[in-house]
Amino acid sequence: MSGLISRDEVIRIADLARLDLSDTEVEQYQKDLNNLLSSGKKLQNVDVNDTKKTSHAVSMVHELRKDEVEASLPQEVVLSAGSKVMDGFFQVPRIVEEQE
């Protein structure tokens, strides 16, 4: 189907978002995304000129915290909800890429 987003693009996005989608889902989301984006495209017609961006609704003073140590959670509580733990650590399967 033609549209803003290709099937490959949908797969790339799913990969970026770490979502294992079925073929049917890929098809469905391709359709949904194209519909939603053609609506979203309307925004591009708004004349924003030199309008500033709003990332926070209300301007506020950033209150910082004093550098004081507070109690942490006990290790067993930290680990309690992890589905795989080992020797006080969370366990994860093989990592296939390096990160900074």
Binding site: L37, L43, Q44, V46, K53
Partner: peptide, 25 residues
């Protein structure tokens, strides 16, 4: 999916940044 797309490097300006400006308006 939609959110990841609008934030992706090639789309950011067209969608997210534009939305933030329209939000200001």
């Amino acid at each position: 999916m939609l959110g990841t797309y609008v934030l992706s490097a090639s789309q950011y300006e067209a969608y997210y940044e534009q939305a933030q400006k329209v939000r200001t308006i």
